[in-house]
Write a protein that binds this DNA or RNA. Structure first.
Length: 382
DNA sequence: CAAGAGTTTCCTGCTT
DNA sequence: GAAGCAGGAAACTCTT
């Protein structure tokens, strides 16, 4: 079996373990979310060189590690059959903890090369602490953090938001086990610039959402109001990592790319010319999961959504357009509105991911095919 | 390449 | 009248 295919097989297994099914019965632990977040993020790149090179090794996923090993196997024409694949399945934090001698033990003749490569990458990314907290980033959380950080009412709460520009990995106390939500607060102190899915610091949501007043930070982004859309999307001002992956410019063309039915030509006009770099959400980032993740972090999403009945999974949109904008940000779709989002929500009724809540505006209920929100699942049950 | 999933977009009609 | 809700239809991208 060739290296690539073997590693691919392992990768599949790893992915399978991380995403058992599409509607992963996840207990939404920080670790699960983090892993998924980084993984999907990494998959986004699909570069020939490997996303791992751009990412702090401390934040590598198992996939990154495998890609990195694979790269070196190819690079050195190493006979992959000599590798014990069992040793290849680990994530960045584990890898970074390995003593030098373990590299030779585990990877044989390739060990030295891997060790030096890792050391180089570690120094490149300024890795100095022993153990990072890799359990901290959740796409939704990150997005929310950016999003809310720009709101006046949250400016105090996130008073150190500017830290996001330059923060480095810090030691954290390990309270996560007892407090599944704790990581949310932690993550703003992370080296987000090393992380890969574009919700890193400085992705100024304010660029597209500023000009707002508190309570109504959205320009009603009706298709008619091109306002915010004429500006760069956060995705456009992201780090270089992403930028290279999504060059599919058709600026000036009439063609609408993106999902769904093309909007009418004369509605909203210009912003539809904005490129859709990332066409499709990776697996595991479905709308209902996005909503769920917002709800699971009440200390950060206040003002956007709330639980009406936590135990029964009934929730309400408080700022429907804001949530829609946030969803749009995630999907790189600046023209998302609550109306569209709600249509997608209504499709969930059929699939029992959501249940109808009659007579109550903006209120929905998770259905039996949704998961990861129940108290027992998030470790708050009993 | 085709089919299916999961939206996205638009629309009409109805309700709050 | 505005905002939501319902749901049909069509279009689109990504995954399988």
């Amino acid at each position: 079996m060739s290296t690539s295919s073997e590693l691919s097989r392992i990768l599949s297994n790893v992915n399978g373990a991380v995403y058992p099914t599409e509607a992963q019965p996840l207990n939404s632990t920080p670790y699960t979310i983090m892993t998924k977040s980084l993984q999907t993020a990494d998959l986004t790149f699909g570069s020939t060189f490997g996303p791992w090179e751009q990412v702090n090794p401390l934040f590598w996923t198992q996939r990154n590690v495998l890609d990195w090993i694979d790269f070196h196997v190819e690079d050195s024409k190493f006979d992959a059959s000599l590798l014990n694949m069992g040793y290849c399945v680990m994530d960045g934090p584990v890898l970074c903890q390995l003593p030098r001698e373990s590299f030779s033990t585990m990877f044989g003749l390739l060990g030295e090369q891997l060790y030096h490569s890792l050391e180089a990458l570690k120094s490149k990314h300024g890795v100095t602490c022993d153990l990072p907290d890799p359990y901290v980033l959740n796409e939704t959380c990150a997005l929310l953090n950016d999003f809310l950080g720009d709101l006046p009412q949250y400016s105090t709460f996130l008073s150190d938001a500017s830290l996001l520009e330059t923060v480095v990995v810090q030691d954290v106390d390990i309270k996560r086990e007892n407090d599944p939500y704790n990581y949310f607060n932690d993550f703003k102190n992370r080296d987000l610039t090393s992380l890969s899915d574009g919700y890193e610091s400085g992705s100024n949501l304010s660029d597209s959402l500023h000009g707002s007043t508190s309570g109504s930070f959205l320009n009603p982004s009706s298709p008619e109001s091109a306002g915010s859309d004429s500006e760069l999307e956060p995705s456009d001002v992201r780090g270089s990592i992403n930028a290279k992956s999504f060059i599919k410019q058709e600026r000036g063309e009439q063609k609408k790319r993106g999902r769904g039915r093309p909007p009418k030509q004369n509605r909203g006009s210009d912003h539809y010319l904005e490129t859709k770099k990332n066409k499709h959400a990776p697996r595991g980032t479905h709308l209902w999961e996005f909503i769920r993740d917002i709800l699971l972090h009440p200390e950060q999403n206040q003002g956007l959504m709330k639980w009406e009945d936590r135990r029964d999974g009934i929730f309400k949109f408080l700022k429907s357009e804001a949530v829609a904008q946030l969803w749009g940000q995630k999907k790189k779709n600046s023209s998302m509105t609550y109306e569209k989002l709600s249509r997608a929500m209504r499709y969930y009724y059929k699939r029992d991911i959501l249940e109808r809540v009659d007579g109550r505006r903006l209120v929905y209920k998770f259905g039996k095919n949704s998961s990861g929100w129940k108290l027992e699942e998030v470790g708050l049950g009993r």
